Amino acid sequence: MLPEYTRSQLALRNGQDRDEIWVAYKGLIYDVQKSRLWRRGNHYEHWAGQDLTKELADAPHTDFVFDKFSVVGILKK
């Protein structure tokens, strides 16, 4: 079973406050640290440590982009 994290806990995994670089999408939290596109904790105008579910609609890619990342937790509602 995956651990649950609050939005506040997710916000700390922004690549600045801690080494982890995580983003949430559709209730799951992904570790995107290995992606060169997230290396500094941001990806274009998006920042790590946030829920990107609503923002993906504007992206030039689909949600299959998350398939290559490990799921590290569940975002608490």
Rank of each mutant, 00 (worst) to 15 (best):
D17L: 09
A59I: 02
D67V: 06
H46L: 15
L56V: 05
Y44Q: 15
V72S: 05
R13P: 11
T53W: 00
L10A: 09
V72N: 06
Y30V: 01
L75W: 00
G27M: 05
K26E: 00
T53P: 01
H43W: 13
L75Q: 01
L56Q: 01
T53N: 00
P3F: 07
A48E: 08
Y25S: 04
F66T: 05
V71F: 04
S70Y: 09
S35Q: 11
L28I: 02
W22N: 08
M1G: 13
G27S: 06
R13Y: 09
H46K: 10
Y30Q: 02
V65D: 13
L12A: 06
K68S: 08
W47E: 03
A59H: 05
R18W: 07
D63I: 01
V23Y: 04
T53E: 00
R36P: 10
L12V: 06
R40I: 07
K76L: 02
R7Q: 08
Q9S: 10
E20A: 12
D67W: 10
K76I: 01
Q16D: 11
L2T: 02
A59N: 03
A11S: 15
I29Q: 04
L56S: 01
A59R: 03
K76Q: 09
R7T: 07
N42V: 06
T6N: 05
G49Q: 07
Q16W: 08
A24W: 00
V23L: 08
L28K: 14
Q9P: 11
W38P: 09
L52T: 03
A11M: 10
E4S: 15
S70Q: 14
A57N: 02
R13G: 06
E20W: 12
A48T: 12
E55F: 05
K68D: 10
L28F: 10
L37T: 13
L75H: 02
G41Q: 08
A57H: 08
A57T: 04
D19F: 07
A48F: 08
A48S: 12
S35W: 04
Q16G: 03
P3Y: 07
R40S: 12
E55G: 02
W47K: 15
K68T: 10
E45Q: 14
N14C: 07
A11F: 15
G49P: 07
N14T: 10
D58W: 09
Q16E: 12
A11E: 13
R36S: 15
T6F: 07
T6K: 11
N42E: 15
G73I: 06
L75F: 00
W22A: 10
K26P: 00
K77F: 05
Q50C: 12
M1A: 14
G49L: 06
E45N: 13
L10S: 11
R7K: 15
R7E: 02
W38E: 08
V32Q: 08
H43V: 09
K77W: 07
L52Q: 03
Y44M: 13
R13Q: 15
G27I: 03
V72F: 11
V65S: 09
L28C: 06
Y30R: 03
A57F: 03
Q9Y: 12
V32T: 13
G73K: 15
